[in-house]
Design a protein around this nucleic acid. Structure first.
Lengths: 354, 354
DNA sequence: GCAGGAACTGCAAACGTTTGTATGACAACT
DNA sequence: AGTTGTCATACAAACGTTTGCAGTTCCTGC
């Protein structure tokens, strides 16, 4: 391990002529006096090769810092060891991965995947009206499988691709009978819980803040709307773009317009909730005194706002783990069922609690 | 373009027997009645091939949803179009990519890289005492170049690898004469500015909160310490681990121990600052009335705390852009110089301002 | 002492591209 | 008309692995 030079048996300098850098199996084979096939097997640690020879070859490889070319290996073995993680930007024009929910999920996915020995290939995809954005990734032989961070408004495209490309798991909504495997939260229930909590805490006029074009947020809206109607409480919908600079302005305008009446705000995500909080603070409205606010996601930063944010928790870490497990099942040819996780109310300081 | 069937010249159904799925250039070549070489050139859009033939082949490819196998392509052309983005976890045992600074930088890097037509391969590397963690990535022929998100405590390893592997750019510190290209903030200046601002705003007893083993944070500490000494203000150093659950506890303990005297806290990062803020709030100490707090990074979430966080801004987006540009220069064989960006004080609500 | 296995190892054929060179056709110039 | 040149395409050699199959050696049991 420690010193290598000075030992004597090594040929680190001047042996049988200038042995250039060892770049290929063939080079190493020549050095070891065996065939490339044997070297390949030895490095793969297969038992087909004599233990002693294997050790010798591995030592030689280490000494010369040799690493087999992955492209060649992958081409031949038709297995890349790479999972594509794709973020469909969908309707959002702003071309950013920087959304904290995406990043959080990505972090957990990356952890799980590397844990399982996979490499992660990150792609930001901008749907273009065809299914090309996805098939470019699935069909290139570059990845063994694909993980989708969100469905955006591309449900049909994903279905179409999944019908002929098996190893694909998406974070998002599950609709009865869909073919692609999805892991996500029960957003309708989540929306409902949020509205019910607000109403139970005394809110009498609600607003839902979020752009409802994406499937998931649309479901949250529908859940909230249903709960409000059942309770006979008025609820309005205020679309908020996710592009962060617009967001503040839009929220300000919305708050302006609906100034007095509102006393309960359901934000479609924690990110929106944080902006709402700040906006209300600037307007001098007390939270939760004048207005109660509830978020969605329970990102790490939700507990750091002032007051800490009441929110609907999605099990992001658990979901990431499930996504990877299901993908692995699919890669092995086994079926994988979609999974809908129950959302959980986390009461903190922005609602009057129960 | 529009309809293809019914024209007559196409063989989309029933022609010369069941033309199975088109998987290789050879398949397509047979269909088009040309050689694989021509198909390859046609799909690459090279001018060596007759415009008409090229169109025909491209149309055929589209029709059959053919995509050339990337592994084969990359093997042959020795160019992968992939950039490895590596997060060295270094001294931190906790194996998480989820640090918000990392994720923010990663987001920008991914945006810049995909913009330039590169794919992004994400690796979480756990340094193991050797340089293997890095060479495994650089030496595998899997990526064209490597971007390091932070140097952790692996400065020497990075230097060693960079001496024989050119296309490598790191976010982090620049030391006189280093061989690897680094892009980062002048952390010493940043630490100094933070301390000076606190002192100018009336702080008389400072604390620096952060683990100073990593190069960058160590520099921030040195800058702050120097400024404090010059002003004759006492400053203490409180190591804070970055593992988020420990963090809160450690901060609470530290605050306990140094209870009364402290009136100025320099957090080594915004994340730490947010935890400090929350902790102080729980203890009932007013910010900035009793204690002033300043962060470092200016992450998006810095403006969302209550009160909004005064911090030292690093140009993360600009830095990401620079990293990618420098990497591209290196990939083209040109030299690339390290870059040290000036930090900027952003005064918000957690200090008494000036 | 010999047949029948084990246990290893070598050989060579893929994997699916890209690309340098050769070939053929046809136009243009002398 | 012969030569030169251009253009379009075919041919075939890489790229560096993995892996089925076929040897080779050596041992075991009869």
């Amino acid at each position: 391990m420690g010193h290598e030079n000075g030992g004597g048996s090594n040929n680190s300098s001047g042996d049988s002529g200038a042995t250039g850098p060892v770049r290929t199996l063939a080079d190493l084979a020549r050095l070891a006096g065996v065939s490339t096939g044997t070297v390949s097997r030895a490095l793969a640690g297969k038992s087909l090769v004599n233990a002693e020879t294997r050790e010798r070859i591995q030592a030689l490889a280490r000494e010369h810092g040799f690493r087999p070319n992955q492209m060649a290996s992958k081409l031949r073995s038709k297995r890349t060891g790479v999972i594509g993680v794709v973020i469909p930007l969908g309707h959002e024009k702003r071309q950013h991965i920087s959304d904290p929910f995406f990043l959080t999920l990505l972090g957990w996915l990356a952890d799980e995947l590397t844990e399982s020995g996979y490499d992660v290939m990150l792609s930001r995809a901008i749907p273009d009206g065809t299914s090309d954005w996805l098939e470019r990734i699935t069909g290139s032989g570059m990845v063994d499988g694909v993980l989708l961070i969100g469905q955006s408004d591309q449900f049909e495209v994903i279905e179409a691709v999944a019908s002929h490309y098996r190893p694909l798991v998406a974070w998002g909504a599950y609709r009865e009978g869909q073919v692609h495997c999805a892991v996500g939260t029960d957003n309708i229930a989540g929306g409902r819980i949020a509205a019910e909590h607000l109403i139970a805490s005394g809110a009498r006029s609600l607003a839902f803040m979020g752009e409802t074009k994406g499937i998931e947020i649309n479901e949250r809206w529908r859940g909230a709307e249903a709960a409000a109607q059942e309770a006979g409480v008025p609820i309005m919908r205020i679309p908020i773009s996710l592009a962060s600079d617009d967001m503040a302005r839009q929220i300000a305008e919305a708050a302006q317009a609906a100034n007095r009446e509102l006393d309960g705000i359901i934000a479609a995500s924690d990110l929106i909730a944080m902006n709402v909080l700040r906006c209300l603070h600037e307007k001098g409205r007390a939270v939760p005194g004048d207005v109660q606010v509830i978020g969605f996601d329970d990102l790490p930063l939700a507990s750091m706002t002032m007051p800490p944010l009441t929110t609907i928790r999605q099990e992001i870490a658990g979901g990431a783990k499930a996504m990877v497990e299901k993908l692995k099942a699919l890669l092995e040819g086994n079926p994988a069922e979609s999974m809908k996780m129950a959302p959980r109310l986390v009461v903190r300081g922005t609602t009057k609690g129960a």
